[in-house]
Structure formats: structure tokens, C-alpha cells
Design a protein around this nucleic acid. Structure first.
Lengths: 339, 339
DNA sequence: ATATATATCGAAAACGTTTTCGAAAACACC
DNA sequence: GGTGTTTTCGAAAACGTTTTCGATATATAT
């Protein structure tokens, strides 16, 4: 029941371990005869190289690490999908860790991956995190490293992002063009770059169309949940019953808003028009169907791995590597909630 | 920029590698003085053991493999969540692979994981798969192995399941008790055990309440998608306009059904009552809210890892190991679609 | 025949750790 | 000062692979 090794093959064939290894790896300096003998015996014994030994020798494991805030999340699970698909295509496996939006956990997990000596790391920062020591440590060790979506701008790694500010601008503009004049914004938490950028985009759109900005109309999520959407919907109705437009940080929260509005019979889109962000699946299923900003999640994962692969290959060949930032395009999707 | 090794520490301290190793692992046969010297130097040099070498020496990697049909799936992403949370707690990392419901891919991925020499494997079978050679190979090699949800009954590994037949029975019974007398069933694909069991549960409930079973009322999914739900909804209305109850293999498809019924203004639950399966998040968000069967997905992941850990530990200690099957409880959730 | 080129092989080092086992040193006791 | 015990250390093997480099052996050319 023992695993087959090069040694065993060598001994039964009466040749050296070296030759067996070379035969299996198609080195030119082994005769066709011995090569065939080795290949056949290896096949019969179901030989597969011991990856632990290969890792030690070659100093790489063909495994990368991925840290994301939440697995159960339409956007992130699509990204995961893109990453593992592309990674598998290139012979890499993916270890997935979840930071639960906690900086402390994220720190531990970076450490775990570094100790594990993965060949590269892809990360989307937790809301609490922003280019802290553990992220810098990755750069210091020169581990191939890609950030996506929630990034630390100042860390000079490769990045895959969308233009959050532009997308938010367009979403807000969409509401304005539909006739909204008093537009509230439910924004994400204070820290994450994309929440900030989306807020700025919202503000910029108001400016451009000469609608006065009112900070009272901006509500800030803590946990970015369905329940928060419901709560804010209620609060908005109480504090600003004349709001006629609403741009929400993400569909999950927007759906919470819709749920509450439905409960209290607010007419949508007649009284209030709503647009979300990220194009979650359920947004096309809810009544009324939610307008949103489409974000190419699968493609983001794919690109993130591509960039990582670039860096891994460059470093292997000792070539200089310059970080790249890829910006993917978003698209306004108009549905019933803003008609 | 080189990594610190035991050798370096040993040389700068003028002692042997052996002693350094022992000091770091708290062996009793090293004096307090040398131990402290080692510990301090190790800390200063940021020493972390080279996991590749440790893997080779100890023959374990503290990494497990997980193969699931689809990452972007409410049920499965919750399971992933449970598994990686529990694994991390016990110092294990998780490599995730996705079979895309393809047996061919699943086969390749099992091979990948075996070659990688993971310490254990957790799997939920693809629809095309059912205890074929690649699964048997895992057992043959005596790799710790747990199946969950979509299992091959005849493979004697540990398993985490729900009682699909009983749950389906209860779902159907629920419709009957609400007054339904002509109940259709949209079932899953032909192969998977849980689709079969749910179908059997449906049939059994009809029998028990003396409602004649009619195979014309059973529709079989190919891909288990939202679109399929819409298609079947249309088909059912055409072929059996007097259907008054509908039990659907999973919420995603049931939501598709609801979407079509909403479009053509079928009154739900008045004309047709519907119940789904798995309690997807969106089911409480759609109008009308979908009744369903709650399935403890996170807990399934957690239990799956627990069982795997049991086997990994037993095998490490050379103890005999007997596979266990854990059955988790389901619960009918009554919402508006079956009121 | 000699010299040169080519084809085929294997010894050995290296990757960095863990663990066994024996040796040396220190201590205790009478 | 001899004997026995305990403490502390290190040599060496082992895990299984990859790769360098030198050694043969064979073929080619002069």
C-alpha cells in the first residue's frame, strides 16, 4: 500500500534514480529503450511524483491563496468562480480564506498563506483594512500579489478594479435624467475605497446637474445587509418623505429598501426611483425589478489571476516586474425600479 | 532577502541544527539557556518553518480538498463557508475546485487532489457522477473522505446528508394539508440521489393521502436553472391548467416558476400553491414570498469537516476507522406562496 | 590508428525539516 | 574515586525529488 517512488522504479529496472527522473521528464540524454521501459513501469505502478518533494526542490507549490471578505455573496462567489477556473487552466490550485470583514482575521490569514509559502496571493480587503502592515509585508517579501475590488490604493501591487466613481456618477445621473430631484444615497462603510468612490461619484453627479448636495440625505451602512436596507428605508420615509430618488451602495441593501417600500405601499418607481449596484441575481427576480450597475465579477476574477500569473512567471525568470492596474467596464441596467 | 532556516540559526549560535529544531518544538532535552537564545534569534530573524520541508518529512500538508458542483449557488457557498471556518479552526486550509456538474472535470479534479496529496477530500457529486472509478480510487488509497448532499450511497465513506425523502414528503404533505389535490412536481435530473429521493418522498405523500400519482405531472430538470422554472411553469399551465399545487426541487427553479406565474397573472397562492427547497435567500424577498424547506447548509459544511477530521486523526494514529453518516434535520418554512 | 564528437548513464549534492540514538558532560551518592 | 543517574547535545538518516557535472561507451572523421 506504499506510494511508488523513483527509487522503486530504478531498483526494479536496475538503473539509477537520475535516469528514471530524466526519462519521465523527457530529457534528451536517455535512450528510447530505457525511456520506454521507465514509462511503462511508471504507468503500471501508477507512479505520481510526490508533490511535497517537488515543492521542496523547486520551491514552488503551484498553489495560490485567495482572501475575500465573504464567500456567501453574489459578487464574490462569481469572482471565486473566475479565479479558480482560470487558475486550474494554468495548473494552479486555489486556497480560499474568508476574512469576515475583520482586519484581525485578515491579518492571521495573510500570515497563514505566507507560512504556507503559496506562489501568490489575491485579496479583496475587508472593510476594516486599508494597506496595513500585513499587506505591506506581502510586498516586502516580494510575493506575487494582486488586489481587486476593495483595494488599498497606495500599495503598489497589481490591481483589478472598476471605476467606482464613474459608475456611481452614471447611476446617479440615470436617476436625474429620469426626473429625480431629491436623491438620497445609502453608502457603504467609511473605510473601503469603493464606498468612498461611489459616494464621490454620487456627489459629483449632483454638482454637475446643479442639485444641491445635502449630507442629511446620505446614510451610511455598517454591515451592508438586507436588514439595514429595510431600516434605512423606514428612516428615509420619516426624515425625508419627499425623496424621489435613491442610489444604494449594493443590490442586497437596495432589495431591503424595496422590501420595506413594498410593505408600506410606496409606489415604485412612481414616487421613488431606485438604483442599486453589482447586479445581483435576485435583482431581476424581485418586484419591481431593480435597476442596477452591472459589474463584471467573473471577469474580474479571471483578470486577477492573469495578473498574478504574469508576476509569478516574471519572478520565476528573474525578470523585472511592474505592477499593472486593469480597469473593467460597468454598465447601467435599467429595470422597473427606475422606469 | 533569503528565508531564514534552522541551519542559519544553528550556525550563528554555534550549535547544531538538531538542537535548534528541538528548542523551537519545546523538546525537554534542551537547556533553558539555549532554548531562550534560539527562541530570541528565531524571532528576530522572523523564522518560519519551511512548510515544503515539513510536508515532506511529516507526510502531511494540513490542507484538504473540496470539490463542489457550483460555487455560485446559495446552498453550496454556505457549505463552503462552514467548511473553511471549521477547517481554519483546526489549522487546515481548503483547496476548492468546481466540477461544473461535469463528471469528466470531477475526475480530473480528484486526480489533481490525489497528486497534490491533500490530507483529505470532501465532495458533493456532480449530477453526472455516481460512485464511479475515480471515487472508488479515493477509497482504495484510503484517503480520508467525506461525501455530502449529493452522495454515492454505495460508497462506504462518511457522509453528511439530510433525509431528502422525508423532507420532500413533508413538503408535499404541507401542500395537501393546505387543500391541494392536483400536485405537480418539478424534479431534479435523473442521476443524483437527492433528486431521486425527493421524487420518492413526493410520491409517497400522494399515496399516503390517497391522491393518484400521475407521471405526467412530473417534470424533470436538466440544468436546474431559473429559466427552466419559467419554461416548466408555462408548460404546466398549458398541459394541466387545473394543477393547484407545485413542489419544486429547489428554490432557484421555484422562483423561475413564480416569475412566470406573476407575468401571466396567476394568483398565488389562491390558484396554485408552491413550495421550493433549500431556503435560498431570495425566496424571502420575492413576491409572494416562497415557502420552502430549510436545509442547514452551514452546519452541513461544519459537520463534513468534523467527520473528515475524525478520519484524518484516526488514520494518523493508526487506529481503525469506521465511516459514519450524519443526518441533519430539515424544517418546513411556510410563507405566502402556500398560505 | 588516433583524435574528436556524440550518446547514454549515474554519483552526488541540494532543498529544510524531524527524529532516533548514542555520546558526552554534569551531577548525585556512597 | 568509583558507580549510577540525569541532563544536554549532535551526528546522521530519512523524506523524494531535480539538476549539475563528470564518466563511460559508442560513433565519426582524419
Amino acid at each position: 500500500m506504499k506510494e511508488t517512488t523513483l527509487k522503486q522504479i530504478a531498483e526494479t529496472l536496475g538503473i539509477s534514480i537520475t535516469t528514471v527522473s530524466k526519462a519521465l521528464k523527457n530529457y534528451p540524454d536517455v535512450s528510447a529503450k530505457t525511456r520506454n521501459a521507465v514509462l511503462e513501469l511508471a504507468k503500471n505502478l501508477h507512479y505520481t511524483p510526490n508533490s511535497f518533494a517537488v515543492n521542496l526542490r523547486t520551491k514552488e507549490s503551484r498553489t495560490i491563496g485567495l482572501i475575500i471578505p465573504e464567500v456567501v455573496h453574489h459578487f464574490f462567489s462569481n469572482v471565486i468562480n473566475g479565479i479558480i477556473a482560470e487558475a486550474e487552466k494554468h495548473g494552479y490550485l486555489v486556497i480560499i480564506l474568508q476574512s469576515n470583514e475583520s482586519m484581525e482575521l485578515e491579518k492571521k490569514q495573510v500570515e497563514l498563506l505566507l507560512n504556507k509559502r503559496v506562489d501568490g496571493i489575491i485579496i479583496s480587503l475587508s472593510n476594516e483594512s486599508n494597506g496595513d502592515e500585513h499587506i505591506k509585508e506581502i510586498m516586502r517579501r516580494e510575493i506575487p500579489f494582486v488586489q481587486f475590488d476593495k483595494i488599498a490604493k497606495l500599495i503598489p501591487s497589481s490591481k483589478v478594479i472598476i471605476n467606482d466613481q464613474k459608475a456611481a456618477f452614471e447611476a446617479t445621473e440615470h436617476l436625474i435624467k429620469k426626473g429625480c430631484r431629491k436623491i438620497a444615497h445609502i453608502r457603504g462603510p467609511v473605510n473601503p475605497q469603493n464606498a468612498i468612490d461611489r459616494f464621490l461619484g454620487y456627489k459629483k453627479a449632483l454638482e454637475q446637474y446643479q442639485i444641491p448636495f445635502d449630507s442629511k440625505l446620505v446614510y451610511t451602512c455598517q454591515n451592508v445587509t438586507f436588514e439595514e436596507g429595510k431600516t434605512f428605508a423606514k428612516q428615509i420615509l420619516e426624515e425625508h418623505p419627499d425623496v424621489d430618488g435613491l442610489f444604494v451602495i449594493t443590490d442586497l441593501v437596495a432589495v431591503g429598501v424595496l422590501a420595506h417600500f413594498n410593505e408600506v405601499n410606496i409606489a415604485i418607481p412612481e414616487q421613488v426611483k431606485i438604483i442599486g449596484f453589482s447586479n445581483w441575481f435576485m435583482s431581476q427576480v424581485i418586484t419591481p425589478k431593480l435597476s442596477t450597475v452591472d459589474q463584471p465579477s467573473y471577469e474580474m476574477g479571471l483578470k486577477a489571476f492573469e495578473l498574478l500569473l504574469e508576476e509569478m512567471n516574471a519572478r520565476k525568470d528573474g525578470k523585472p516586474f511592474v505592477a499593472r492596474t486593469v480597469e473593467l467596464l460597468t454598465k447601467i441596467i435599467e429595470r422597473d425600479s427606475s422606469k
